[in-house]
Amino acid sequence: MDVPLEEVLPESALREAVDLLVRLVEAAGALIIFAGAVWVFGRFLAAAVRGGLPHRRFSRIRLGLGRFLALGLEFQLAGDVLRTAVAPSFAEIGQLAAIRTALNFFLNREIAAERAEIEREHRREREAEEAGPRRPASST
């Protein structure tokens, strides 16, 4: 006796299950972003109290926040993909793709730029250390 899938798992039950999963995944993304913001704010305050924020340290802190944002947005994107998995419209899919892709692209580009700046600063510091202290010219 073959029972149609619609009778075993009605569409309304499937929609409810997917809705629950969407909320869980989106909540995870929101928690990641919140935890990252709190953690980065703590690092910011600690650095400021210890003696200011040189550009390199500030860039590292921003890079850390960017990583949390990127990860959180990936979870948000996963929630959107789950939401559109049950009878999506082309408008929903297009809107989802455009907004999330653009946001993720620009965020990742900024993270890469910050990382490159930190690497340049490290390279300059290493070069300065390798050059060593400069001795004044002798007058003999």
Rank of each mutant, 00 (worst) to 15 (best):
residue 35 A to K: 01
residue 73 L to K: 01
residue 116 A to Y: 00
residue 37 A to Y: 03
residue 114 E to Q: 14
residue 123 R to N: 11
residue 50 R to T: 10
residue 18 V to P: 11
residue 60 R to L: 15
residue 18 V to R: 04
residue 135 R to T: 06
residue 43 R to P: 09
residue 110 E to L: 07
residue 24 L to R: 08
residue 73 L to S: 02
residue 6 E to K: 00
residue 55 H to D: 10
residue 32 I to N: 09
residue 53 L to T: 01
residue 3 V to T: 07
residue 114 E to P: 06
residue 133 P to G: 10
residue 128 A to T: 05
residue 32 I to H: 05
residue 96 L to N: 03
residue 80 D to P: 04
residue 11 E to S: 02
residue 17 A to L: 07
residue 99 I to V: 14
residue 99 I to L: 13
residue 12 S to C: 14
residue 136 P to R: 05
residue 57 R to D: 12
residue 49 V to W: 03
residue 21 L to E: 13
residue 118 I to L: 02
residue 120 R to V: 04
residue 64 G to W: 02
residue 97 A to C: 03
residue 135 R to Q: 09
residue 123 R to F: 04
residue 136 P to L: 04
residue 117 E to L: 10
residue 4 P to M: 00
residue 132 G to V: 00
residue 96 L to S: 02
residue 104 N to F: 10
residue 108 N to H: 08
residue 56 R to V: 15
residue 64 G to K: 05
residue 136 P to H: 04
residue 60 R to A: 12
residue 65 L to G: 11
residue 17 A to M: 11
residue 37 A to I: 03
residue 27 A to R: 12
residue 60 R to G: 14
residue 115 R to G: 14
residue 131 A to L: 08
residue 86 V to T: 01
residue 1 M to K: 07
residue 5 L to R: 08
residue 25 V to P: 04
residue 2 D to K: 12
residue 111 I to C: 09
residue 52 G to E: 03
residue 8 V to C: 02
residue 1 M to C: 09
residue 118 I to Y: 05
residue 41 F to V: 06
residue 67 R to S: 08
residue 5 L to C: 11
residue 85 A to G: 05
residue 137 A to E: 13
residue 133 P to H: 09
residue 27 A to Y: 14
residue 42 G to R: 03
residue 109 R to S: 13
residue 101 T to W: 03
residue 125 E to M: 05
residue 9 L to N: 00
residue 89 S to W: 03
residue 81 V to Q: 01
residue 124 R to N: 14
residue 139 S to H: 11
residue 127 E to C: 00
residue 45 L to P: 02
residue 111 I to S: 13
residue 23 R to W: 07
residue 3 V to E: 02
residue 35 A to E: 03
residue 72 G to A: 01
residue 84 T to L: 13
residue 101 T to P: 02
residue 87 A to D: 12
residue 134 R to K: 06
residue 17 A to D: 04
residue 131 A to Q: 07
residue 78 A to V: 06
residue 59 S to R: 15
residue 8 V to N: 00
residue 100 R to N: 04
residue 47 A to H: 07
residue 102 A to P: 05
residue 30 A to H: 05
residue 108 N to S: 10
residue 140 T to L: 08
residue 127 E to V: 00
residue 35 A to G: 04
residue 61 I to L: 00
residue 120 R to W: 02
residue 54 P to G: 01
residue 34 F to W: 09
residue 6 E to C: 00
residue 114 E to L: 15
residue 3 V to S: 01
residue 17 A to P: 02
residue 139 S to K: 08
residue 39 W to I: 07
residue 25 V to A: 05
residue 39 W to S: 11
residue 106 F to W: 09
residue 87 A to Q: 12
residue 59 S to M: 14
residue 55 H to M: 10
residue 73 L to T: 03
